[in-house]
């Protein structure tokens, strides 16, 4: 039997490591960078808001009880008449919205999502220092296509889920879940390095930060 590509490649790696063995025994990775940081609510909120704004995301701040009102305001302002929501989004969030609400399900083909004016989702974790929102496909965030195809993404972030830095955020993730990191709307700098916001993903990202949730 001829060797499989797998055996050949693994064999080559072992040969290479025999030809050029590691100088030291085992490498211990120095992790002297900052981890486990905390900041008071007000500072995390200010940092996240600053970074999101820097990347041209719209930021709205509200309390839990005003969630529906703020979301409705954002959708109205953007002229969104028809929005999609994941299966288990808190339905009260759209109580103040007078447009059409479509609850996503797996049998809706992705191109059909393009007919939506926008989508409203929750979020898993956010990183203040980089202005990054993490979606992990939980039932209140939905499948990845839902928050990708429509041109407007309204994303609700609870301040309690906002951490300071990247290590703190990665520590909160569940690796096996399909995870999307979003830092502002899509952008390109491919033409003379001039930043253009809005290419293929949602061209508008509106973040609703709930300060008491």
């Amino acid at each position: 039997m001829t060797a499989t590509a797998r055996d050949t490649v693994l064999g080559r790696i072992r040969d290479a490591l025999a030809l050029a063995p590691a100088p030291a025994p085992a490498t211990t990775v120095p992790r002297a960078y900052r981890t486990g940081r905390t900041l008071p609510d007000a500072e995390r909120l200010a940092l996240l808001t600053d970074r999101l704004t820097d990347y041209k995301a719209q930021v709205h701040t509200c309390t839990r009880e005003r969630t529906a009102e703020v979301i409705a305001g954002v959708l109205r302002e953007r002229g969104a008449h028809r929005v999609g929501v994941p299966a288990q989004l808190d339905e009260r969030w759209l109580d103040a919205y007078d447009g059409e609400v479509l609850t996503d399900s797996g049998d809706i083909p992705a191109p059909a999502l393009g007919e939506l004016d926008g989508v409203v989702t929750a979020s898993a974790v956010s990183c203040a220092e980089t202005g990054t929102i993490f979606l992990d496909g939980s039932p209140d965030q939905g499948r990845r296509a839902l928050s990708l195809v429509p041109d407007l993404h309204v994303c609700v972030v609870d301040l309690s889920s906002v951490v300071v830095g990247v290590p703190e955020a990665v520590a909160r993730l569940v690796p096996e879940r399909p995870t999307t990191l979003i830092s502002g709307p899509s952008a390109t700098s491919d033409i003379e390095l001039e930043r253009v916001e809005g290419v293929h993903g949602p061209r508008t990202l509106a973040v609703v930060i709930r300060t008491d949730a």
Binding site: R51, G137, T180, S183
Partner: peptide
């Protein structure tokens, strides 16, 4: 790379997720 604090999008996936992707 781009001189940004974070790039706009990063995707992470593990094998196949039923009903997503």
């Amino acid at each position: 790379s781009t001189g940004e604090r974070m790039n706009p999008y990063t995707s992470m996936w593990t094998g196949v997720t039923p009903g997503d992707g």
